[in-house]
Simulated scan of single mutants.
Amino acid sequence: MFKSLREDISSVFDRDPAARNALEVLLCYPGLHALWIYRIAHWFWVRKCFLAGRFISHLGRFLTGIEIHPGARIGRKFFIDHGMGVVIGETAEIGDNVTLYHGVTLGGVTWDKVKRHPTLGDNVVVGSGAKVLGPFTVGSGARIGSNSVVVKEVPENATVVGIPGRTVLSQKREEGRVDLEHGNLPDPEARAISCLFDQLRELERKYALLAREHEELKNVVEASRRDVAT
């Protein structure tokens, strides 16, 4: 148990440059508190004490603003930064070394009592406000941009942005390192608009060239007419 607690605290220092000392982390990090409360609730849940598990989970939500269903499965070195508004559903599965930012939802899309929440592989980073909805897999090493809405499977090491989420980059990152630069992601809409502007400038250049040629031809024709008239 103490080894697990030390590992949790160490993961905070690895991924939050604002962390100064262990006491501050113990007292002031709601993501860490939510994780520990979840583990207690999960202990009751797997022993079929469902009411106790849900009640402890509810207390954790009240205290931290983070809702983790006790039926979810969470791996090692899980880190929620800030955390307010994070929701993790009952059948969600989270691998090792995963990072979530505030406002993230791992939600379901059906009322049936089946696997209805996503599975996150190892080393996944989910940016603030992102929604991952449905019983599919987000591959290991994937990054999901802030405020994206992901509704289908994500390949390993892919970067997904937009509504609905689209894969804009697939690149393996350094092994064992958590990539926190979730704000430094490609913007496919900006790229598309930039391409349209490039095409517009090219059309303007061609139009100007045609206009000059037309003016030159007009001058030649007028000069020819004057020569014939004289």
Rank of each mutant, 00 (worst) to 15 (best):
E93M: 06
D16P: 06
F79T: 09
K218S: 15
L32N: 01
G183Q: 15
V138N: 05
K152T: 14
N97F: 07
L26R: 05
V151F: 02
D8P: 05
A158I: 08
R116H: 07
I163Y: 13
I163T: 15
H69F: 04
G107C: 10
E7Q: 07
A223Q: 11
R20T: 12
R201C: 01
V178S: 10
G134E: 04
E175S: 14
Y207T: 15
R205Q: 15
A211G: 02
D122L: 11
A158W: 13
F50M: 06
V126L: 04
S194N: 10
W111P: 10
G108F: 09
K115S: 14
G176T: 12
V87E: 01
F2L: 12
E93D: 06
S57K: 03
Y38K: 00
V86P: 01
W36I: 00
G183S: 11
E202W: 02
V109G: 00
V124F: 04
I74F: 07
I56F: 06
R6T: 08
P155Q: 10
E24Y: 11
P118G: 07
N123H: 15
P186H: 11
G31H: 00
C49Q: 14
N219E: 15
V25D: 07
I193M: 13
L106A: 08
P30M: 06
R61A: 13
H33P: 11
V124Y: 01
R61G: 08
T167E: 15
S224W: 12
I56R: 07
K113P: 05
A158Y: 13
R6I: 11
Y29C: 00
W43G: 06
G31L: 01
P17S: 07
V109R: 09
G103D: 08
H182P: 03
T105L: 03
T119A: 01
E153I: 12
L203R: 13
H69V: 01
D96C: 01
C49I: 05
L180T: 09
F55P: 00
L23Y: 02
L26H: 04
A190M: 15
V98P: 08
I9R: 04
Y38G: 03
K206S: 12
S224D: 12
A142I: 05
M1E: 13
N219I: 04
Y101M: 09
H102Y: 06
R47S: 00
E181Y: 04
G31A: 02
L23N: 10
V132P: 05
P186Y: 09
D8Q: 13
G165E: 06
D81Y: 07
E93C: 03
T110P: 01
R54V: 02
L27S: 11
T64I: 04
H102D: 01
I88Y: 05
K115G: 03
I94T: 12
H58K: 14
E90S: 08
R201E: 12
L63G: 02
I193R: 14
E215P: 01
F78D: 00
G60W: 08
T137L: 08
V125G: 00
P118A: 09
F44R: 01
I163E: 06
A229H: 14
N157P: 08
L106S: 03
Y29F: 13
A158T: 11
L51S: 07
A52T: 14
T105V: 10
V86T: 15
